[in-house]
Amino acid sequence: MTVTTETRALRTQGARVKPSRDGGIRESAISRAVAMAVMIVATLYFLTPLWWLFVASTKTRQEFTTTNPLWFSDFALFDNIAALIQYRDGVFLQWLANSALYAGVGAALATLIAAMAGYAIAKYSFRGRETFFNVILGGVLVPATALALPLFLLFSQAGATNTIWAVLLPSLVSAFGVYLSRIYAAASVPDEIIEAARIDGAGEVRTFFTVATRLMAPALVTIFLFQFVAIWNNFFLPLIMLRDEGLFPVTLGLYVWNTQVSQIPDIRALVVIGSLLSIIPLIVTFLALQRFWQSGLANGGLK
């Protein structure tokens, strides 16, 4: 069964041998039934809202309030998507593209920058190394929302609020990424390999890009993914930085629409279908990369 081999592969990274799952004493049928019941109730709790959102997205405006909220009536999903895309000259697509830009470019650069710093801290000794690392660790405890207001004040001094940079530049810092990279590099990039690359005449920077990044791949994917989610979900920073609707990420745009529902009731259907479309990219990314981030979390995240 693929399910058990997958878990076993994960397990054996930490443990040498794994005895059969059914080994030892046999568990009673009652405990199995109770355990499965808990899992099924939990699954319903986590998936019902998403199911509701999907079903609601397929309904026409009239059916939205008059038919069973958890089951389909006429399947109008594509009409709804078309209405969403046409609304106000496709501003929703602009928001999706903005989110993809902020989160994609921001997370990619943040991962690279954090990986270089973490690798250097793990593999070279230099004066002030521990102090540097501890200051960064302190940064992990400073929540992004606490920085949003002072960042706004600074950017307004520079006349740079309401620009792409106001959202993108602060997203390039991942203190957690440096922490994870350091631990992962220390554990998975042997000094001998760096030495061998030196003997072959490769420069330090080239060694990092050609050898170390490959060995650190699971950690890098983990950092990328969590930074991607953090930027995609970020709300406070764009809320106070941006006034121009054309620069909004999708979360801010949908928030603004949702505040208008009481004046423009028709917009509610757009909020529903827009919400569905805005979470699909994240779910797809997580599913596509799950092999990487799960092992990245298991190996490096928790030591």
Binding site: F46, L50, L53, F235, T251, Y255, L282, T285
Partner: peptide
């Protein structure tokens, strides 16, 4: 799966 839903969207839903 819910972790992939932004806080704003989760709250709207």
């Amino acid at each position: 799966a819910p972790y992939a839903v932004p806080a704003v969207i989760a709250a709207i839903m």
